[in-house]
Simulated scan of single mutants.
Amino acid sequence: MLVQGVVALVTAAMTAVVPASPSRGGDLQKSVDGVAAIGAMAEVRSGAQVWRGSSGVAELGTSRKVPVDGRFRAGSITKTFVSTVVLQLVAEGRIRLDDSVERWLPGVVPNGENITVRQLLNHTSGLYDYKNTLPMPPSEDFYALRYRTWTASEQIERALANPPVFDKPGSQYDYSNTNYLLIGEIIKKVTGRTYSDEIERRIIRPLGLHGTTMPRTSTRIPGPHPHGYVPKDGGQLDWTEMNPTLFGAGGDIISTTHDLNRFFSALLGGQLLPARLLQAMKTPGIEDGTYGLGLSWHDTACHIRVYGNDGDALAYQAYSFSTADTRRQATVAVTPHLPTNPDATVNTFLDKAFCS
């Protein structure tokens, strides 16, 4: 690990921040108020200036405000943490991106000798997504599985019972959560510790991400948090508590807007990875793609490219992006009023954060 850089980052993070100007803060508040969700919270950074705000309610049927420092399930942003761990192992010479899956998990994946660690990380393996084998709302089977503990091996087995979505690994992009379940298993094989242990040891503790936790089988969200919901019988069912092994290494992390901004500042600022591996992380898996090794990017309305990731954890959705120089960052988390998709209104908020 690049300990010296991490220590420097934590020291810098302890310095005072400057509130955003009243006019900018007002514009950002209006924009977050426009996010289509039950509740939303955000942190926007521009140099030393920081704005934090929230909108909506923390729980349906109440007037409680969404806590600006609230915790939430960050979904697939977990993948960026997992990928960072793998790339640190690459930097340490303990694994190679072009190692085959068969090298580390012999006999687990058909055609595993022709699928690489890199292809798992950038979703070009072609492996079927295990989530497509699971019931989802409004299926009654979905609600019955709320507290079930899943193992990575059984989810991988469910996925591999289906043929790959394309024949030649590396030739196409197809997002599959199965890839990161396998990456989690490879991390355990390489280090002797779970991906959760490694994320805590290598990222959460060194960066002082005090609001970020790896929940394992814990069904609750610790600390202040808004309630999240899934649709049921034409209404909204409180789904705040659930067994996060459903997501596993592909999406189980719990965090805050502040912590995610700090993490992406450290990552994109070069404190967690050597430059060559950070560049590999930002390299698309296919030509003209927008997803690299656990990292995605898009261009804002004002043509500023921002890097980060977004995540969907059923009752929570999160979006965290930063300019390449980390001078501007924005993280927003929402509790969506499903089936309404908040993406378009969140993108409007991100444009306001990065372009004004």
Rank of each mutant, 00 (worst) to 15 (best):
G250L: 08
G269V: 06
M281K: 04
D238H: 10
I254W: 10
G234T: 12
L237K: 14
A275N: 14
A249Q: 02
Y229P: 04
I254M: 11
T283W: 10
L293W: 00
G289L: 05
K232G: 00
P224Q: 04
E241I: 02
P224M: 02
H227D: 14
T245Y: 11
L237C: 11
D233H: 12
R220A: 12
R276F: 04
A266Y: 01
S255N: 05
T240S: 07
K232W: 05
N243E: 10
L260R: 07
K232F: 09
L260V: 06
G251R: 09
N243Y: 09
M242S: 12
G289A: 00
I286D: 05
L268S: 03
G235I: 04
T290V: 15
F263N: 02
H258P: 03
G285S: 02
G269E: 02
A266D: 02
M281T: 03
P226H: 07
T219E: 11
P224V: 02
K282R: 13
L267Q: 08
E287I: 07
W239Y: 15
T219Y: 08
G228P: 01
I254K: 07
D238Y: 13
G292H: 01
E287T: 12
H258R: 15
D259K: 13
L293G: 01
P226W: 04
H225D: 12
N243H: 13
L267Y: 12
F263G: 01
L293N: 00
L267V: 09
A266P: 00
L273V: 03
H227T: 09
L272V: 11
G289H: 07
T240E: 03
G294L: 04
H227S: 15
L278K: 06
G248L: 13
L267S: 09
P231R: 14
P226C: 08
G248R: 06
Y229E: 03
L277F: 11
G250T: 02
L273A: 07
G289Y: 08
Y229A: 08
G250H: 01
T257N: 10
F247Y: 12
K232D: 00
A275M: 14
G223K: 07
G292F: 03
H225S: 14
D288A: 07
K282Y: 01
V230D: 03
P244D: 05
F247V: 01
G251H: 03
G250V: 09
E241G: 07
G250A: 13
L277N: 05
I286G: 03
Q279H: 12
A266K: 06
F263H: 00
T219K: 10
Q279D: 14
K282A: 13
G270H: 09
A266L: 04
S255M: 08
I253M: 15
T290Q: 15
L273Y: 01
W239G: 10
T256M: 07
L273E: 01
G248A: 15
L267T: 05
D288N: 11
K282N: 02
G234E: 12
Q236F: 14
G270N: 11
D259G: 13
L246Y: 14
P226I: 04
T290Y: 15
P231H: 14
G234M: 09
G223V: 07
S265C: 06
L260T: 12
Q271F: 06
Q279A: 14
F264H: 09
